[in-house]
Design a binder for these strands. Structure first.
Ligand SMILES: Nc1ccn([C@H]2C[C@H](O)[C@@H](COP(=O)(O)OP(=O)(O)OP(=O)(O)O)O2)c(=O)n1
Ligand SMILES: [Mg+2]
Length: 1031
DNA sequence: ATCCTCCCCTAC
DNA sequence: TAAGGTAGGGGAGGAT
């Protein structure tokens, strides 16, 4: 019951009655209550055994098999308490009578349907769903040793070997590497500038030294591409003026393999793992690539060798040569990069280039310059690689791709606009890039045809109706030869994942757990490899479909499966984004445990990380980027009175609890609390405290008073000293104690050095160097801080709701801001003012010593670790209303996406950015007597500019609003303090620097403000065409 | 109307 | 024996 306490659990009556009513009835009325006896769902078997039990096969009934073996697939997700509640209603009927004892075993929804596995006589099982195991595979699986060497049971060895051999893994990896190389090259080109010269030189004179091959191996990392064209010579070519070329190697893997096997040229050749007579006529090895000679027999890429052999018994097989593919690809890309205005990496053997400006500058010699240029490129590539490339040319991407079909093999084809209609007419929907068999089936079913000539007659609306708005529109355009998309060469990454759905065969949960942590290790490495961290984890599981054979036809394949995906918040100790393998592993493993799948039924496991931040950005973002963090120091003593009811809390709180729990699992106990504070960091890190702007104020506030004083003192000292002497490096500290994992423990989690908790670390971004201040005697005692006058915030949740203030966010604000917001909102309400005037100076209330967010008290986690508040989302949910021009405002707020002039409610923008504002406020109040520290200024400037720019991957697109909110608050603070000086221009500024009287300090702060604003405006003008309105 | 989440689909 | 990975577009449908 605990597991499902936050889930929507209903009785079967909900289903039945909703079905009868034809609508989804309100689920609340059918809520399953543990005390009540639920209607029995026609005698199901005992609940599925837990993945923790680890015993052998179950006799689960099979799915009814409507038309597929997997008849009750992905809708059966189970949600544990930590997962995001699905927005779609999750229904889990739990007939209580079936539970052995409600206490011993939590209710486990039955994934299996009620109908026994009787394929109707009229519907025999199709061959691919046959319930007989692959005999050869089953025999191999009988050997313990063999299993231990060739399946997932082998753990890390299996993963490494698998990825080293997986062609699809290589394709994916190369693709992302190429994208990165291209975008890097373009970035450099823009910096360098230079003139592009149309180059129609002899093919033999080309120079491809531009590519630096740094190392062998299959990875493209270390290579460098150079673009010769400066700043993407893209003009605003109109639709028909563009020249797009789609360049694609013919039978790439085969062609590459034949470079050193010229004797096989002209023969039916395929690339696959199975070589020679292996597997005989029944190899399930997949054909990665087939020569054009082989294709004459009907052989296609992706077929099994078995199928291929039936089509052509004399087929020759050659092995993979991944390293060779990489080299050829880099050469190919190097040539294209130096011959194109812009390039979009499509795959290892394929790229789209825009050559509009190049072609326009070419001379017409009574022929088609585009085609001439394509042939030049083809020759160059052939000469440099020994492989044939084909090139399709057209005025848009879609048509260029179509043209390639006609160009192949070893040719080029320019699809001219006049020829488009008759070129397209005989094609079918699945011939278009992006439309596959599902689209074809949908078209056939809903539109009665797959022919493009037929579909040309249909209205745009009917296509959208059948395929969805975007897809329908896309198809409608495509049929008419229209495609407005431009080449994309630097799109930010949105996810990092790794999954293995091959060779997954486990016997027990120990193996599963080990495997899971190794997979986590892999995904962590990939995150580090792209310098990213994530905030969300999705576990992707494939479980053998109950009516599928234990060993499927495809050797060690996954066979027909049900898939189960679960997402959860991924959080490092303070709710930060992470790439920590142990944290990822613990989250993933915990999610898998909640799925209760018998280990031997697993057929696929994947971990996907999303909500990415770049490593550099996340350091800042975790402090300024809207990352909330509650101060628990003040209420730690009161948290005992908690836990009344948790039912009324947002599910976000549950996530926090769980995040903390997971992380704490991984922490040696001594490292979880603040009291473990001044402990040394692991080897080789130079230690220093972070610059003040980097300090998480809530952590700062939570420090013991004496420590805080020391830090304050030091920051004061530093801000006064322009060039502080670097502190001598500390002696190498002892490594943190390693806790051995006990054999019997439920969580034999790897302990790594990254789990060290440290006071100065908590103040700093994770990867940052920090110092243990006390140890090095940096701090002297200083006078006690000005005592803070406690205030009482007197408001009910109801009133907040009436005032339109989000109570949760409100609770996160510092009390003085709370008070201010409250006053403002009450005032506004009373006098009918729409928006709060945040610019009006108000009395500053000192923060209290104790403030317990009133409505959160009951659910506060006891410890200050992992108190992750999900990124505030309010901003995005506030509907913008029309902007009313305002005479004295110099600028306008512009929506980043639409370019529309908009405006958002001040109070919301305000709460959204509470964290940053708070940092600014503290900054100002503590250092207001001095000229602002350049480092701190730089930090804020960088953060704010990044907000506006939005380019820093990982910044949400509400960045502009956030930046404006922060700037407004800063402005408010400055006006309060040095209102008179706002327009006192710093004419004689230069002579007075360092003089230090209060007026100069004020001017300096104003100057800094204006400078930062100026920097933001530069970006804003570039991006939106206007500067920012900070009123 | 628009957002969000959980998928499905597609490509190589 | 074989190595069915992965990232991103977008649709369905609930939430706001
Ligand atoms: N199902 C597939 C499809 C492709 N590939 C690999 C091998 C191919 O050589 C390479 C490029 O894919 P293409 O679709 O471009 O196919 P080819 O280059 O082999 O042939 P062509 O482009 O001439 O049609 O990707 C693969 O491993 N498995
Ligand atoms: Mg190809």
């Amino acid at each position: 019951m605990r597991e499902f306490q936050n889930m929507k659990v209903v009785t079967p009556a909900w289903l039945v009655e909703s079905a009868n009513a034809g609508v989804l009835l309100p689920w609340q009325e059918y809520k399953f209550r543990p005390g009540e006896r639920a209607e029995d769902a026609q005698g199901r078997p005992a609940p599925q055994k837990s993945i923790l039990d680890g015993f052998a096969t179950q006799n689960a009934p099979s799915t009814p098999g409507l038309n597929r073996p997997r008849a009750t697939p992905r809708t059966r997700q189970l949600y544990g308490p930590t997962e995001r509640l699905a927005t779609t209603s999750v229904i889990a009927t739990v007939p209580k009578a079936e539970l052995p004892t409600p206490v011993d075993r939590p209710p486990i929804p039955q994934p299996d349907p009620t109908v026994p596995p009787k394929p109707g006589p009229s519907r025999p099982n199709p061959p691919w769903a046959k319930n007989s195991s692959n005999v050869a595979a089953a025999r191999a699986m009988n050997s313990v040793q063999w299993r231990g060497e060739h399946t997932s049971a082998a753990g890390a060895k299996f993963i490494d070997g698998y990825y080293a051999s997986s062609r699809l893994h290589h394709l994916s990896t190369w693709k992302s590497e190429l994208r990165w190389l291209v975008s890097e090259a373009q970035k450099h080109a823009e910096e360098a500038g230079g003139d592009f010269i149309v180059d129609e030189e002899d093919v033999t004179t080309m120079d491809i030294d531009a590519t630096t091959f740094e190392q062998g191996g299959v990875s493209m990392r270390g290579a460098e591409l150079v673009v010769r064209s400066p700043g993407k010579g893209k003009g605003k070519a109109r639709e028909h003026d563009r020249v797009i070329m789609h360049c694609d190697f013919d039978a790439f893997f085969v062609s590459a393999g034949l470079v050193d096997r010229p004797e096989l040229k002209g023969k039916p050749v395929v690339v696959c793992h199975s070589q020679d007579g292996q597997g005989g006529a029944s190899s399930t090895s997949e054909i990665a690539s087939s020569s054009y000679e082989a294709r004459k027999y009907g052989i296609k890429n992706g077929m099994s060798l078995q199928q291929g052999r039936t089509l052509c018994p004399d087929i020759m097989t050659i092995p993979y040569e991944f390293e060779k593919y990489k080299k050829i690809s880099l050469t190919f890309y190097t040539i294209l990069m130096s011959h194109a205005d812009d390039l979009q990496a499509v795959s290892v053997d394929e790229a789209l280039i825009e050559v509009t400006s190049i072609i326009s500058r070419m001379t017409t010699q009574g022929d088609d310059p585009a085609k001439r240029y394509a042939e030049l490129l083809r020759k160059k590539v052939k000469l440099a690689t020994g492989c044939e490339v084909s090139i399709g040319i057209a005025h848009n991407i879609m048509l260029a791709r179509l043209a390639t079909r006609r160009a192949k093999p070893a040719g080029s084809y320019h699809l001219l606009p006049v020829a488009v209609p008759e070129f397209i007419a005989p094609l079918h929907i699945q011939d278009l890039h992006g439309f596959g068999h599902a689209a074809r089936d949908k078209a056939q079913e809903k539109l009665g045809t797959t022919s493009l000539a037929e579909l040309l007659k249909r209205s745009r609306a009917s296509l959208c109706d059948a395929l969805g708005p975007k897809t329908g529109e896309m198809l409608w355009n495509a049929i008419r030869g229209i495609d407005e998309r431009v080449l994309e060469s630097d799109k930010p990454r949105k996810s990092v994942s790794c999954e293995i759905n091959y060779g997954i065969r486990f016997e027990d949960n120990d193996q599963v757990e080990k495997f899971m942590y190794q997979l986590a290790d892999e995904v962590a490495k990939r995150l580090d490899g792209v310098k990213m961290r994530g905030r969300s984890l999705t576990l992707k599981i494939m479980k053998r479909s109950s009516d599928a054979p234990v060993e499927p036809a495809k050797f060690l394949g996954h066979g027909p499966c049900d898939t189960f995906n679960k997402q959860c918040v991924l959080a490092a100790p303070r709710g930060e984004a992470t790439s920590n393998r142990t944290i990822i592993g613990a989250h993933a493993w915990r999610l898998l445990k909640t799925m209760t799948i018998p280990p031997e039924e697993l057929r696929g496991i994947g971990i996907q990380i999303t909500k990415l931040e770049s490593t550099e950005a996340s350091a800042e973002a975790s402090h300024g980027g809207g990352q909330g963090l509650l101060t628990f120091k003040s209420n730690a003593g009161k948290s005992d009175g908690q836990t009344g009811d948790r039912g009324d809390t947002a599910d976000g709180v549950g996530q926090q609890d769980e995040a903390a729990e997971v992380f704490n699992e991984n922490l040696p106990p001594a490292h979880t609390g603040l009291e473990s504070g001044r402990r040394e960091l692991p080897e080789s890190e130079t230690l220093d405290i972070p610059s003040f702007s980097q300090v998480d104020m809530s952590v700062f506030e939570a420090l013991p008073p004496d420590v805080r004083q020391e830090l304050e003192e030091e920051y004061k000292r530093r801000s006064a000293t322009p060039f502080p002497k670097p502190e001598p490096p500390p002696p190498p500290p002892p490594s943190p104690p390693k806790q051995e994992s006990r054999a019997s423990t439920k969580s034999p989690v790897k302990r790594g050095r990254h789990t060290v908790s440290h006071i100065t670390r908590q103040l700093a971004p994770r990867s940052r160097a920090s110092i243990s201040p006390r140890k090095h005697g940096l701090f002297r005692k200083r006078p006690p801080p000005i005592p803070k006058r406690p205030i009482k915030i007197n408001v009910t949740e109801e009133e907040l709701a009436k005032l339109g203030i989000d109570a949760v966010i409100f609770a996160m604000l510092p009390p003085d801001i709370q008070q201010e917001q409250l006053n403002g909102a009450r005032y506004a309400k009373k006098f009918g003012v729409e928006e709060l005037d945040v610019t009006a100076p108000k009395k500053v209330l000192k923060p209290p010593i104790h403030f317990v967010p009133y409505h959160k008290r009951a659910v506060m986690p006891p410890r200050p670790t992992a108190n992750y508040i999900p990124r505030p989302k309010l901003m995005q949910q506030v509907a913008p209303h029309e902007y009313h021009p305002d005479d004295d405002n110099e600028i306008q707020e512009i929506d980043g996406a639409t370019g529309k002039v908009i405006r958002k409610s001040n109070k919301v923008a305000y709460t959204e950015t509470g964290d940053v504002q708070r940092v600014i406020e503290t900054w100002l109040s503590r250092f207001g007597e001095r000229i602002p520290n350049a480092k701190d200024v730089e930090f804020f400037a960088k953060f704010l500019v990044r907000c506006v720019d939005g380019a820093g991957s990982g910044m949400p697109d509400t960045g502009v609003e956030r930046a404006i909110g922060v700037m407004r608050w800063w402005l408010v603070l400055l006006r309060r303090r040095w209102g008179k000086l706002e327009h006192a221009r710093d004419t004689e500024d230069q002579q007075h620097v360092g003089a230090g009287d209060s007026e100069d300090v004020g001017k300096a702060w104003w100057k800094v403000f204006r400078d930062v604003k100026g920097k933001m405006d530069i970006v804003a003008r570039k991006k939106f065409g206007g500067s920012l309105a900070i009123r």
